[in-house]
Simulated scan of single mutants.
Amino acid sequence: MSKRDYYEILDVERTVTEVELKKSFRRLAMKYHPDRCPDDPHAQEKFKEAKEAYEVLSDPQKRSMYDQHGHAAFEGGMGGRGAGGFGDMGDIFGDIFGDIFGMGGGRGRSRRGADLRYMMELDLEEAVFGVEKNFQVPTQVSCHHCNGSGSEDGKTVQCRTCNGHGRVRMQNGIFSIQQSCPHCGGAGQTIEKPCKPCRGEGRLEETRTLSVRIPAGVDTGDRIRLTGQGEAGGAGAEAGDLYVEVHVREHAIFQRQGNDLYCELPIRFGQAALGDELMVPTLEGEVSIQVPPETQTGQQFRLRGRGVKSVRSGRTGDLICHVVVETPVRLTRQQRELMEQLEATFKHEDADQHTPRAKTWVDGVKQFWSRVTS
């Protein structure tokens, strides 16, 4: 079955920018992540497909190779370990040498496992106070049958290509290039009897359940490194790391900016005019604040130390309440009559003293029209 185009998988144009590419991948990863779709048997496959496509297109060198050669760039002699692993330029040279000498396969078995990234969504409260989370991640683990060695009997023999040196020399006229042995991947040893379950790779695909402690104060974009929890290395080599990237969901009340929290404080115009004592929500419970008389929309009240404690400096931010004076709706007859009586009291010579902003606005309009008509 032919592989789908990577641009098609990520639903982007071939001219896509790095930022747009990352945004599209995040959307698909969140949509098809196995944790979010436990009942969808195809979700994990779509997640892996999107991950594979992003790993190629997010790397300028691999993307250039893919644009020129398509999937063939990562198959056979062009791309090394296939779309799941992707070799560097040394890998490509190694494949070329392997083709020249008539050798193939078996290289790179002793390489460190690949690093993985997991996007974890948190509620604001979880990010502010910290939390311990369990999550599942599909990865490659060390083969239990051969203990990661890739050998059925646990034995290795000296590589016949490099005679155990791990490197070979390629001569072309006056040029001489030394390269890791393409047959043993620089290990100097090869496996005669590959392990059947892992086919000599020393690794198997498995979904693992891991636990991570999220420290208090993290924010979107912060990463937590789990050493050795990435993909297992080939032939018992060192495992890669797993990076948990935090994404904090939007909150119904609070917006976070750095270590400060912001929220709107809706009040009636009677409370704004006369002043009042109000209860304000915080992440740790309600607190009382005193709204002074003649409070206007846009005024702010700062509650010190009611924000977020920084995960780095340890400094705690503030909670800033932004006043919004609400116009009353669905008035009863009595309320409307009282409002009309109140409004009538403003219609006299010194009415401007009660509405300073309106007076300033009217004066500004007059100055504007006088400049336009002059």
Rank of each mutant, 00 (worst) to 15 (best):
M1V: 12
K3W: 12
I9W: 05
D11Q: 15
V12E: 11
V12W: 11
E18R: 13
E20C: 11
S24N: 15
F25E: 03
Y32E: 06
Y32P: 01
P34Q: 01
P41C: 08
F47M: 09
K48F: 14
A50P: 07
E52G: 15
V56E: 01
S58A: 09
D59L: 12
K62P: 03
R63H: 03
M65P: 00
Y66Q: 00
D67Q: 14
A72G: 13
E75I: 10
E75C: 08
G76P: 07
M78I: 04
G80H: 07
A83R: 08
G85Y: 04
I92P: 04
G94Q: 03
G94M: 05
F97P: 00
F101I: 15
F101L: 15
G106Q: 11
S110A: 14
S110H: 13
R111C: 04
R112T: 11
A114C: 09
D115H: 15
M119K: 09
V128I: 13
F129G: 13
G130M: 02
E132I: 06
V137T: 07
Q140K: 12
H144Q: 03
N147R: 13
D153K: 14
K155N: 14
K155S: 12
T156L: 11
T156E: 12
Q158P: 12
R169H: 06
M170L: 10
M170H: 06
G173I: 08
G173M: 09
F175R: 04
F175Y: 10
I177Y: 11
Q178Y: 09
Q178K: 15
Q179P: 01
P182N: 05
P182Q: 04
G185A: 03
G186I: 00
G188K: 03
G188M: 01
P194E: 01
K196L: 09
C198Q: 00
C198D: 00
R203V: 06
E206V: 02
S211L: 06
V212E: 06
I224K: 00
Q229N: 08
A232L: 02
V244W: 05
V246G: 05
V246Y: 06
H247C: 04
V248I: 10
R249V: 04
R249T: 12
Q255F: 14
D260Y: 01
L261M: 02
L265S: 08
L265P: 10
L265Q: 13
R268Y: 03
F269N: 15
F269I: 04
A272K: 02
L274P: 02
L278W: 13
V280R: 07
I289K: 09
Q290M: 04
P293G: 01
P293A: 02
Q296Y: 04
G298H: 11
L303A: 11
L303G: 07
L303V: 11
R304I: 10
G305L: 00
V308A: 01
S310T: 00
R312T: 13
R312K: 12
S313N: 05
I320N: 04
C321S: 14
C321R: 07
C321E: 13
H322S: 05
V324N: 07
E326M: 10
P328T: 10
R330C: 05
T332I: 02
E337P: 08
K347G: 02
D352V: 10
Q353R: 08
Q353K: 10
P356E: 01
T360C: 11
T360Y: 03
Q367Y: 02
